[in-house]
Design a binder for these strands. Structure first.
Lengths: 200, 200
DNA sequence: TGATAAGCGGAACATGGTTCCGTATATCGC
DNA sequence: GCGATATACGGAACCATGTTCCGCTTATCA
């Protein structure tokens, strides 16, 4: 029904460049300082003025949500690429680490999600809608190849890794990585190909 | 083991008065504007300077936690008073409304709890440690008197009312009150004294 | 290649947390 | 009661950060 009012001029090239630069900078800054990072910091890193930032993202929540969606897209898209480049179980392992890395950059987002800001409401659904099929395809291929057990649910795994990643502590990152490796080993041990040796 | 270093002078009377005034003002302002209310607002309402506020509560979280504990104490303490003044089921009903009123003043606190600030970590335990025994005593007395059913768990009720109270919407307060009344009626209908008529 | 709309940068403003310090006063020994 | 003095007070000032505004710059188009 709706028709774009045909614009006389196309969007300026620098505007496009800047939008991208802002998103990239925001991604980096959020990862480093959490989603409460100051807007000036992001503008500085992006090499633009704060005015430019605010013109495109009228408030913080818009920016946060955009960055989040962009990262979800990138991470989910990688599943297909990995499947092309590696044997299924290796692709799966690499992707899970990639996913864990994604989660590691989400400092403070969990709290923001509960802030009630309407810009965040659709994010959990977006998260699941993208990651669940991505992981499911990896699991399916690896299970078909007999490289991992075949009774794993994508959503369960996504949640489990999310939980592992939130366990803070001194060296949370290293801890989470060890636990993830354990999980992956467990997936492989249960594979049909390697028999049913499930002692200890 | 530790011994207070015996102070030469006692705490000044005005300091005591001001601490109380700040807590009272903070309670009112938090209820009205949420826990993110500006410190100046609180100082103004308390009739003190911000300096006074900050001397006693070095940061916001300290103040929020103190107000919260004070309100929990007051609400929990009321259970005993109500039991003295009313017949058990009425005391219970009044207290549940009192508890709902307490919850209604907690705008934004839920989010703050998840903020990771260490000053908040002990609050949930404090909440439960005070409210569960208070409500349990009310339930027990009313059940003994045969005025309500006897299969109610204090913690379940606390949670249920908490959930009812969070349901937002246009007139969240009125809605929550209606639901609470329904709940209370349900408790009474199940009483031994009134038979076992659990139709519709 | 000039006209012009689109876009830009960053100063300026608004808000709110926190600190600092000169002033006021409650307490205590006399 | 009466100073002396530690204690506490008030609020201006400072800093960080979100947000707006507008004069200047520049990509686009004819």
């Amino acid at each position: 029904m709706e028709q774009d009012t045909e614009p006389k001029r196309r969007v300026r090239a620098d505007a496009l460049r800047n939008e991208d630069a802002v998103l990239e900078a925001a991604k980096a800054v959020f990862a480093e300082m959490g989603v409460d990072a100051p807007a000036r910091e992001i503008a500085l890193k992006a090499g633009v003025g704060v005015g430019t930032l605010y013109r495109r993202f009228p408030n913080r929540a818009d920016l946060v949500a955009s960055v989040f969606r962009r990262e979800v897209d990138a991470c989910a898209a990688e599943a297909a690429k990995l499947l092309d480049a590696y044997k299924p179980a290796d692709a799966l392992e690499r992707w899970l680490h990639r996913y864990a890395a994604f989660l590691a950059t989400k400092k403070g987002l969990a709290a923001a999600l509960h802030s009630g800001d309407s810009a965040f409401e659709t994010l959990p659904a977006y998260f699941r809608a993208n990651f669940e099929p991505a992981l499911a395809s990896l699991l399916e291929r690896a299970a078909q190849a007999g490289e991992i057990r075949d009774d794993l649910q994508a959503y369960d795994l996504l949640r489990a890794i999310g939980n592992l990643s939130t366990a803070g502590g001194d060296d949370g990152a290293a801890h989470a990585r060890r636990m993830l490796d354990l999980l992956i080993d467990g997936m492989r041990r249960g594979a049909k190909a390697s028999g049913s040796q499930d002692a200890d």
